[in-house]
Amino acid sequence: MFSERTGYIVWVNDWKAARNLEKYGNVHYISRKMHYVVIYLNSERAEDTLRNVQRLPYVKKIERSYRNEIKTEYSSNVPDKTRFYSL
């Protein structure tokens, strides 16, 4: 039902021109101060799309986001230390 998506961070020279990246994928966030865009692309067509995005004159570099590879399930194997700090 849902296609697999991959996140990329696109560093740009001009954040106003970066709004044009919406036609290549799903723009999640645009940073005006640091001049980067977080964009999600379809995994099957990501390589072709990245080649086209890299050719744009306002794009400096593209980095892959590793957010989907970070473990989000946590276990509490550490003992609870709240009893040591109570009065």
Rank of each mutant, 00 (worst) to 15 (best):
residue 1 M to D: 10
residue 5 R to L: 12
residue 7 G to K: 11
residue 8 Y to R: 05
residue 11 W to H: 14
residue 13 N to A: 10
residue 14 D to A: 02
residue 15 W to N: 03
residue 17 A to E: 14
residue 17 A to N: 08
residue 17 A to T: 07
residue 18 A to V: 03
residue 19 R to T: 10
residue 21 L to F: 05
residue 22 E to F: 00
residue 22 E to G: 03
residue 23 K to R: 15
residue 25 G to H: 02
residue 26 N to T: 06
residue 26 N to E: 13
residue 28 H to S: 09
residue 29 Y to E: 10
residue 30 I to E: 02
residue 30 I to A: 01
residue 35 H to F: 13
residue 35 H to N: 15
residue 40 Y to R: 09
residue 42 N to C: 04
residue 43 S to L: 09
residue 44 E to I: 08
residue 44 E to Y: 10
residue 45 R to H: 10
residue 47 E to S: 14
residue 48 D to H: 07
residue 49 T to F: 01
residue 49 T to N: 05
residue 51 R to G: 11
residue 53 V to I: 15
residue 54 Q to P: 00
residue 55 R to T: 05
residue 57 P to R: 07
residue 57 P to V: 05
residue 57 P to T: 07
residue 58 Y to V: 04
residue 60 K to P: 00
residue 63 E to F: 11
residue 63 E to Q: 14
residue 65 S to I: 01
residue 67 R to T: 13
residue 68 N to R: 15
residue 68 N to A: 11
residue 70 I to T: 09
residue 71 K to A: 09
residue 71 K to I: 13
residue 72 T to F: 07
residue 72 T to A: 09
residue 72 T to V: 09
residue 73 E to M: 09
residue 75 S to L: 06
residue 75 S to R: 14
residue 76 S to P: 00
residue 78 V to H: 06
residue 80 D to I: 05
residue 82 T to D: 08
residue 83 R to D: 09
residue 83 R to C: 00
residue 84 F to I: 06
residue 84 F to C: 04
residue 84 F to P: 00
residue 85 Y to M: 07
residue 85 Y to D: 01
residue 85 Y to A: 06
residue 86 S to D: 09
residue 87 L to F: 12
residue 87 L to T: 12
